[in-house]
Simulated scan of single mutants.
Amino acid sequence: MKKVIIAAAALAALTSAVSAQETVRIGTEGAYAPWNFVNDDGALAGFEIDLGNAICEHAGLTCEFVQNEWDSIIPNLLAGNYDVIMAGMSITPERDETIDFTQDYFPPDPSNFAAPAGSSYDFDALSGLRIGVQGNTIQAAHAEENFGADNTIVAFSTFDQSVADLAAGNVDVVLADGSSLDPVVANSGGALEFIGPDILIGGGVGAGLREDDDDLEETFNAALDALKADGTVDALIAEWFDGQGPYYSE
């Protein structure tokens, strides 16, 4: 009981420090289902929208989401246009040189190739393919480093554009997070399928913050600790990712 009281007091102190600032603004892409997207009513929705709201409610914060294109999502955080990034962003050493991250709220997610059904390629010696990726992602960097010499890497502004060009035959395969490709392949009516090996790139997914926002980072981490322990994070993962998990609660 004493530990619970101390933890609650610590969270209250952190929340009080953060509450002194204006509304906490959370930047998200709004184009990366099921992580974050714009629904039929024109509102932001998805796993990270629900999780961000849960974090803010638990911490007693007033929060609002700000939609921002992926390519400029880190520069606009650094420019002060919002305070936190929740946009399906994997924690990597390269990004950690520029921004800080909370603890992960989704474990490392294998990346996969999707291709038209019936496609067959030798993934030990890929050559002559047009490989679609979303620009400035860990998959884009991996594709350039490992396949760029013998293939054409086609970078798109959004994940949806890469999938649309795959369906149109403008690229041969798309490399992306398996969690985002899962519903695309499942809803393709058999037109698309996964091919090749799982590829582990980067760590889990976390929220990005400016390096000097220590109080806000600690507040988000304390809320994530509690929401993992009470099953909220796993429940949202199961809801948005077709029953995956549990990963964080017993």
Rank of each mutant, 00 (worst) to 15 (best):
K3A: 15
A10Q: 12
A10W: 12
A13Y: 08
A17L: 13
Q21T: 10
G27I: 07
G27T: 05
E29A: 04
E29T: 11
P34E: 08
W35M: 14
N36V: 01
V38Y: 01
D40H: 10
D41H: 15
D41L: 05
G42M: 11
L44M: 05
F47N: 02
D50Y: 06
L51V: 02
G52K: 05
C56T: 08
A59D: 01
E64Y: 00
F65T: 00
S72L: 00
D83N: 11
S90T: 13
S90E: 12
I91T: 06
P93C: 13
E94S: 11
R95S: 00
I99K: 08
I99F: 03
I99V: 15
Y105W: 03
F106N: 04
F106L: 13
P107V: 14
N112S: 14
F113H: 12
A114N: 03
G118K: 06
G118H: 10
S119T: 12
R130V: 07
G132W: 04
V133R: 06
N136S: 15
H142F: 15
N146T: 07
G148L: 10
A149V: 05
N151S: 10
T152P: 02
I153E: 00
A155Y: 00
Q161I: 09
S162N: 14
A167Q: 14
G178E: 03
G178C: 12
S179P: 03
S180D: 10
S188F: 11
E193W: 06
F194S: 12
D198H: 08
D198P: 12
L200A: 05
I201H: 00
G203L: 02
A207K: 02
G208P: 02
R210L: 05
D213A: 15
D215Q: 14
A222N: 06
A223W: 06
D225G: 06
T232H: 02
V233S: 10
A235M: 07
L236E: 05
E239Y: 05
F241N: 00
Q244R: 13
Q244Y: 10
P246W: 05
